[in-house]
């Protein structure tokens, strides 16, 4: 465990709290892509299936996995029930079939092992790298977003971006490599880069998130 990984995991936790806080205070899920949220739930469930047999290996990992699956399911529950009237499916129109299909193909072609658990793990890594696309697409369609929504997206993106120095550190210090996670993590960070740039130039300077 190193500083980058801890910072990345904390960033992920923060993103969850920011999202739930946004929905509770504004009593709405305006600006949040339901499709991205569903993709994240699929990501966490397929990746953390190993809770069933590695639960005792690391209390930290197991606790985080439970938090990620639980909060993701809870977010979807809120979007389907309490805040359903504020969800507008007409602006959440990204075709997720391609993301799921592409991730499934990559997972089947290059898993570390051809076992169900490893293929699902690999699938979840690829799917996570693109799961934000419906959300970014929605931002692009609306052209602006509430500041708190952009904080959420930033924290979620920072999580995988911070894993990149973590993988570099582990490569040099522990000779540890995880090529699937590293390549997918870099793709994920690239997808966020435009958003990071606008977030940095606008939101951090106290202005509203608005696309140029």
């Amino acid at each position: 465990m190193n500083l980058f990984r801890i910072a990345g995991d904390l960033s992920h936790l923060i993103s969850i709290f920011v999202l739930l806080h946004k929905m509770r205070t504004s009593k709405s899920c305006i600006g949040i892509s339901f499709k991205s949220q569903v993709l994240y739930l699929v990501v966490y469930v397929t990746r953390y299936l190993d809770l069933l047999w590695t639960f005792q290996h690391s209390a930290y990992n197991s606790l985080m996995k439970i938090i990620f699956i639980g909060s993701s399911a809870y977010t979807i529950y809120l979007m389907l029930n309490d805040f359903k009237p504020t969800h507008d499916p007409n602006i959440d129109t990204f075709k997720v079939e391609y993301l799921i299909g592409g991730s499934a193909i990559l997972a089947l072609l290059f898993p570390y092992k051809w076992t169900t658990a490893e293929v699902l793990w690999s699938f979840s890594i690829w799917l996570e790298s693109v799961a934000i696309l419906p959300q970014l697409f929605m931002l692009q369609r609306t052209g602006e977003a509430e500041t708190i929504t952009t904080h959420y997206i930033f924290a979620l993106g920072a999580y995988r971006a911070l894993y990149i120095p973590n993988w570099l550190y582990r490569y040099f210090m522990e000779s540890y490599t995880d090529p699937i996670a590293t390549v997918a993590g870099i793709i994920q960070t690239i997808l966020y880069s435009d958003f990071f740039y606008i977030y940095y130039t606008k939101v951090l300077k106290g202005r509203k998130f608005e696309l140029p």
Binding site: R5, W121, S175, Y176, T177, A181
Partner: peptide, 10 residues
């Protein structure tokens, strides 16, 4: 060491 048997990251 390379990759461990179980994934130790999140």
């Amino acid at each position: 060491k390379g990759r461990p048997e179980t994934h130790d990251e999140l």
